[in-house]
Design a protein around this nucleic acid. Structure first.
Length: 319
DNA sequence: AAGACGAAAGTGGTTGA
DNA sequence: TCAACAACTTTCGTCTT
């Protein structure tokens, strides 16, 4: 099929020779393309003609063509965050095939029709159009929240499934995207609070919570219960607390869990309190206010949890 | 002066009738 | 739909370092 523009993953090791055909120094036509060093060299006089080329060859050893294609280094990685996963082949506007030949009028009419429908199905079908908007919103939100790429991909997957289940229709895209991000974060154990996410959208916290519950309910996602330990590393990071202390805080929380002190309590508050206690014990004291601010709870909550933990677990905290 | 503490009143969400 | 309820927040005065 020659109608389509060249595949982005096409493997072409003579690429650079298309641009430089002979050595500008001695005129020799014998050029050596050294892909491993990213250079094209004149075989006669040794002049380096081009350098720092992008190696379009396979990334690793490949034992057959399929593997070679799969591992080719060219092209953007596929991604769920692009509405068509970044895999679309585009019928471009040239009325030429990929060898540059003119196309017969009959063929041309066919291509026009194909092109028309491709465009219609890509962006104009309602769910795809929805996805386009949603994915740009997802991009914006996740970069503002500093959410890792993997989690963003999870959010995109959840959103796709939500569309398939016809949950999205008739609801605000912004709210649903925010909800998928929240869900993805919890799923991947890097939780953000509802408030943190609301901060960057026009979505009300209440609505976000509702959308979230709707999504996990309908999609049947089994959500791991948020544990205080999930927040430890992030809070610890922001408070500049050593990993040893973070580790000990995790142990403290495990202990509290065993004693049944964590049920029904705000996990962020517990994480904050654990950090507070251990930080003092480890000589990395942080004020209640600092911790409360990072954890998005009040000093009072930190205080209450901390008092409770100390009392119930018979801890010693020298002030 | 900053931080820690605790009491009291207020808020938003869940539960069960 | 409503009231009861537990957890959390806000506010504020007091004590400690």
């Amino acid at each position: 099929m020659v109608l389509l523009s060249p595949d982005r993953n096409e493997y072409n090791d003579t690429h650079s020779l298309e641009y430089v055909k002979s050595c500008p120094e001695c005129g020799s036509m014998e050029l050596i393309n050294d892909a491993t060093r990213g250079e094209t060299v004149c075989a006669t006089c040794g002049l380096v003609i081009t350098e720092k080329e992008i190696d379009r060859g396979p990334e690793w050893r490949a034992f057959n063509t399929e593997e070679k294609d799969k591992r080719a280094r060219t092209g953007a990685p596929t991604s769920y965050t692009i509405h068509d996963k970044g895999l679309s082949t585009i019928i471009d506007w040239h009325d030429k095939d990929s060898y540059g030949r003119k196309i017969s009028p009959k063929r041309r009419a066919q291509i026009y029709r194909l092109r028309k429908w491709q465009i219609r199905t890509r962006v104009h079908s309602s769910s795809a159009r929805n996805l386009v908007i949603a994915m740009s919103e997802l991009d914006r939100l996740s970069s503002q929240l500093g959410i890792p790429r993997g989690v963003k991909e999870s959010a995109a997957v959840i959103y796709r499934r939500a569309i398939e289940q016809k949950i999205i229709r008739g609801r605000s895209i912004e709210a649903m995207v925010a909800a998928t991000i929240y869900a993805a974060c919890r799923l991947r154990k890097v939780p953000r609070t509802l408030d943190e996410i609301c901060q960057y959208t026009r979505v009300k916290r209440k609505e976000l919570g509702r959308s979230y519950r709707l999504i996990i309910g309908r999609l049947g996602v089994r959500m791991p219960v948020a544990s205080p330990t999930d927040y430890l590393s992030r809070f610890g990071e922001e408070l500049n607390i050593s990993s040893r202390t973070q580790q000990r805080a995790a142990e403290l929380i495990e202990l509290a869990k065993e004693k049944g002190l964590t049920a029904g309590k705000d996990p962020t508050g517990l994480a904050a309190a654990a950090i507070y206690i251990v930080a003092i014990q480890e000589g990395e004291r942080r004020t209640q206010r600092e911790i409360a601010k990072i954890a998005h709870v009040t000093e009072v909550t930190v205080r209450n949890r901390y008092k409770e933990l100390v009392k119930k677990l018979h801890l010693r905290v020298d002030v």
